[in-house]
């Protein structure tokens, strides 16, 4: 006799529950396999706590139409309103983006912006000020300093330049564990600083979509160890590595982003100029970069390294968690041409 087997309601619910648990476990395993469940839960918990309990990040926007305008005045005003780290008595390292010099492409931080930051740091009583960079493509930074106008500016300001690629080394413990690395060499100048200011360029980038204050931190790791173009760090995953850098800095940090003339399209080197007329200033580097993304017409949630950093609680990305002060974002926003997509 053919007996039809039927599933009772209770059995069906049990089966559904078990399937749900199995599916959830599968998803968690998939997402945590490479980093470990403990790490994943730690990052998720910190991110959740930050979203609910952390105060809003403050980011200041300033309008400055050209490099011949009052850059210092614009920067000074933005700095004062952005809850920036105290500089009195501090050893301050200013880290511009000097990735390279490409004729006609505004791919580097303009020296006028770095010069203005030198003046602001002096006004605020910094004990020492150095400008420092570890370039990505060329071993000899002097040619870049000459071509970009930095040699002349630094001599005029009598400010020392430190080539971070050749500095003494310090082992920096990595707070996050996002890349699987436990430590990283960084330049001693960075480790010994009280405050590090990432003076970045507002631009697009073919690996990360945008390049602003956090991507600029690539320059603090020494070329003598990681080579040129520091590719071994890219291999470990750019979003994870950028999160490591932003999360593990051995010093207080702040950001100033040069968007007076930004760069669109084929970044980080070969894009074209966009007159954004903007300076972006803040102490939460994730919030600064999220604001930069919005200034360029990007959705920050679509940018992997920002999404990851915000999820892990390194900083604020959502507009609701960022208090914008100063100039209106809407007025300064432009739609930048997208970089070529490279998988």
């Amino acid at each position: 006799m053919d007996r039809k087997r039927t599933l009772s309601r209770r059995a069906f619910l049990r089966l559904a529950l078990l399937s749900g648990i199995a599916a959830g476990a599968g998803i968690i395993y998939q997402r945590t396999e490479s980093v470990g469940l403990g790490n994943y839960l730690r990052w998720m918990a910190r991110g959740g706590a930050a979203r609910f309990f952390a105060p809003k990040a403050r980011v200041a926007l300033a309008a400055c139409a050209t490099y011949d305008a009052d850059v210092l005045g614009a920067l000074r005003g933005a700095w004062q309103s952005a809850n920036m780290p105290a500089l009195r008595g501090a050893r301050v390292v200013l880290k511009p983006n000097l990735v390279d010099f490409v004729s006609g492409a505004p791919c580097f931080t303009h020296p006028r912006v770095t010069q203005a930051m030198i003046h602001v740091a002096r006004e605020l009583g910094a004990r020492t000020i150095v400008v420092a960079e570890g370039t990505t493509f060329r071993r000899d930074v002097r040619a870049i300093l000459d071509a970009t106008g930095y040699s002349e500016m630094l001599a005029r300001e009598r400010v020392e330049f430190v080539d971070l690629n050749y500095d003494d080394l310090v082992t920096m413990p990595l707070a996050g564990g996002y890349t699987g690395l436990k430590t990283l060499f960084v330049a001693r100048t960075i480790a010994d600083a009280d405050v590090l200011i990432s003076i970045a360029k507002l631009k697009t980038h073919h690996w990360t979509q945008i390049s602003a204050s956090i991507k600029n931190l690539f320059g603090i790791v020494p070329g003598v160890k990681y080579g040129w173009p520091k590719n071994t760090l890219h291999i470990r995953g750019i979003p994870a590595f950028l999160a490591e850098l932003a999360d593990s800095l051995p010093t207080r940090a702040g950001a100033v982003v040069d968007g007076i003339v930004g760069m669109q399209g084929d970044g980080p080197l070969f894009g074209s100029a966009v007159a954004s007329g903007a300076l972006v200033v803040g102490a939460d580097l994730v919030a600064v970069d999220a604001t930069c993304a919005r200034l360029m017409g990007f959705d920050p949630a679509q940018i992997d390294y920002l999404n990851f950093a915000a999820w892990a609680g390194i900083g604020a990305m959502d507009a609701s968690r960022i208090e914008l002060v100063g100039e209106s974002l809407t007025r300064l926003a432009r739609v930048y041409a997208r970089p070529p997509q490279v998988e």
Partner: peptide, 10 residues
């Protein structure tokens, strides 16, 4: 050769 083991060639 790369700069470090595991690196691409440069």
């Amino acid at each position: 050769w790369g700069w470090q083991p595991g690196d691409a060639s440069w």
